[in-house]
């Protein structure tokens, strides 16, 4: 039985902080943003969090899929910025969207790839018949220690997919594979407001090793070659890594650029590669084959091969397009960013 993506939805806050402003404030050379491949990042407002953004993306995904809350059998919420350390976010979103009570629902955590795992779990559930349709949400108000390198990119955004029978899908999941190890490249301790990372160690042994390994496994298992893919989308911690990993896999830049959103909105963590996938679905022709590889620190990568179906054109029309959402923006200052994200130390209620 074929399983695919029946609908997708995205949410990117309108407010953008320029990387040059971050550089100027924290004393970085003005050439650094270009080296990181980042122009600006999206910033959620004070009253937004991963739940509210995920709700919006999920609402649009269900609207694209044309399904009601009664038809969703599972809700998976991938995030590393849960509003509650204990208490599911998935249930809040499900309830607010009117999704039925008889369902699976949980929050998944694996740094930036939890939502990717959610998609693979969903494929399994639908294939086995345990679920007809599932809702997978990746949403983060990404945290970064102010002034850290991550402060250039850590941003806010959400993406959601309805996974269901391939017959009703805009793209079918042809194959998928996951590669995980214990690699401490990036973490956030309990009660710590910002993540820590091992800087250069996040590159070769973490990001590159896991993505390349997952993609190679996918190619081995399917017998496909990189040349068989029309698009390649990789996790996007910055604007450079996806192009570098593509080069090492022998994939030309023009297949990566359509799904590269981080330069314009920053790294939305759990929504990062999957937002790129949403954008590509809105541009791809039926028959196109898409390679997607997520990455989550800690570390692991899910590689997917998707094939776009005819119905994609109809589904694109049923919701806002990523390109329009990316372009609908308002610049803010670092001061406003600090206020929006609660970065200022103050007495609450004062």
């Amino acid at each position: 039985m074929e399983v695919g993506i029946r609908g997708w939805g995205t949410y990117i806050p309108r407010f953008r902080l320029s990387a040059q402003e971050v550089a100027a404030l924290w004393g970085y050379d003005s050439k650094l943003p270009k080296a990181l491949g980042i122009i600006e990042k999206s910033v959620a407002e004070e009253d937004e969090d991963s739940v509210t953004m995920g709700w919006y993306a999920a609402k649009v995904a269900m609207q694209r899929a044309g399904i009601s809350g009664d038809e969703v059998d599972a809700v998976f919420f991938g995030t590393e910025s849960k509003p509650y350390a204990v208490k599911p976010s998935a249930t809040i979103i499900a309830d607010a969207l009117g999704i039925k009570k008889r369902k699976l629902a949980s929050d998944l955590e694996f740094a930036c790839r939890a939502a990717g795992e959610g998609v693979r779990i969903s494929v399994g559930l639908v294939k086995s018949g345990l679920a007809q349709n599932t809702l997978v949400i990746g949403s983060d108000t990404a945290q970064a220690n102010p002034g850290d390198l991550l402060d250039f990119t850590a941003s806010s955004g959400a993406v959601a997919f309805v996974v269901g029978p391939g017959s009703a899908s805009a793209a079918v999941v042809e194959a998928s594979v996951t590669y995980v190890t214990d690699t401490p490249d990036f973490w956030r301790r309990d009660r710590s407001p910002y993540p820590e990372h091992a800087e250069i160690f996040t590159g070769e042994p973490a990001y590159f090793h896991h993505i390349v390994s997952a993609v190679k496994l996918l190619l081995e298992e399917t017998g496909l070659k990189t040349g068989d893919f029309d698009y390649a989308i990789f996790h996007q911690p910055n604007g450079r890594f996806p192009l570098q990993v593509a080069r090492s896999l022998g994939i030309p830049q023009e297949k990566v650029l359509p799904g590269l959103v981080t330069p314009y909105i920053g790294n939305t963590y759990n929504a990062s590669a999957l937002l790129g996938l949403a954008k590509v679905l809105e541009e791809a022709r039926p028959g196109s084959r898409i390679l997607v590889a997520t990455f989550g620190s800690g570390a692991g990568s899910d590689a997917f091969s998707l094939v776009v179906r005819d119905s994609v054109f109809e589904l694109v029309k049923r919701g806002p397009r990523v390109v329009d959402i990316v372009n609908s923006k308002v610049q803010i200052s670092y001061g406003e960013y600090s206020k929006f994200r609660g970065l200022l130390l103050r007495n609450i209620g004062g």
């Binding site: 309108r14 407002e45 004070e46 739940v51």
Partner: peptide
């Protein structure tokens, strides 16, 4: 929400969005 206060206009089309109302910090 989702707009600078100076940009709001009468007649503007809006849609309902989920947001935080209040949060009992911390």
């Amino acid at each position: 929400v989702g707009i600078r206060s100076d940009e709001v206009r009468e007649g503007m089309e809006v849609e309902a969005v989920l947001r935080k109302y209040v949060s009992d910090e911390p």
